[in-house]
């Protein structure tokens, strides 16, 4: 249980080498070993989606993934999706539509939607709702989150010319 393992991976574009217990989750490694506290833990059961990060371009629940499984991967957290000074178009749309209140589920919403819209920049409201059904928000009732995601799509569409959905 307490075996210490060395782990090398890429976090938000920078290589890191850390030592973790074999049982440490990726979420705890990011939060407590690397100090990236933007990733939140809402249930540790893989249900609420607050801990979602992007591993090799896929949205992943970091509470269900062991840190050692991240060996050699590229991990992006909400911090890695944020500029220093300004909000990204997705974040700005969240703010405009009041798509967050307490902010606790928000990092998971941002990472999940970033992964979705990167892959499917023309996703419609039903598709967005379907994908977001794995992320629980207790404050907003989701409606403004869907509105924000729909508005933010345009920022992703230039990157995907084929319009594939």
């Amino acid at each position: 249980m307490t075996a210490i393992m060395q782990l090398s991976f890429d976090v938000n574009g920078a290589p890191v080498v850390v030592e973790v217990q074999a049982r440490t989750t990726l979420a705890d490694c990011l939060r407590h070993t690397l100090g990236l506290t933007g990733t939140h833990l809402g249930c540790e059961h893989g249900i609420c989606g607050a801990c979602t990060v992007i591993v090799d371009d896929a949205a992943v629940r970091s509470c269900l993934m062991l840190a050692v499984q991240a060996e050699g991967t590229r991990v992006v957290t909400v911090e890695g999706l944020s500029g220093d000074d300004s909000l990204t178009p997705l974040q700005a749309a969240f703010r405009k539509h009041h798509a967050l209140q307490c902010g606790f589920c928000t990092p998971g919403m941002i990472t999940t939607l970033h992964a979705l819209l990167t892959d499917e920049p023309f996703a419609d409201a039903d598709r967005i709702r379907d994908v977001l059904s794995g992320n629980i928000c207790r404050c907003t009732g989701y409606i403004p989150i869907i509105e924000a995601a729909l508005e933010a799509r345009i920022a992703y569409q230039g990157k995907r010319e084929d319009g594939r959905r």
Partner: peptide, 9 residues
């Protein structure tokens, strides 16, 4: 929102 959206809460 400026801190919440960027993981800085």
């Amino acid at each position: 929102d400026l801190r919440f959206l960027r993981g800085r809460g």
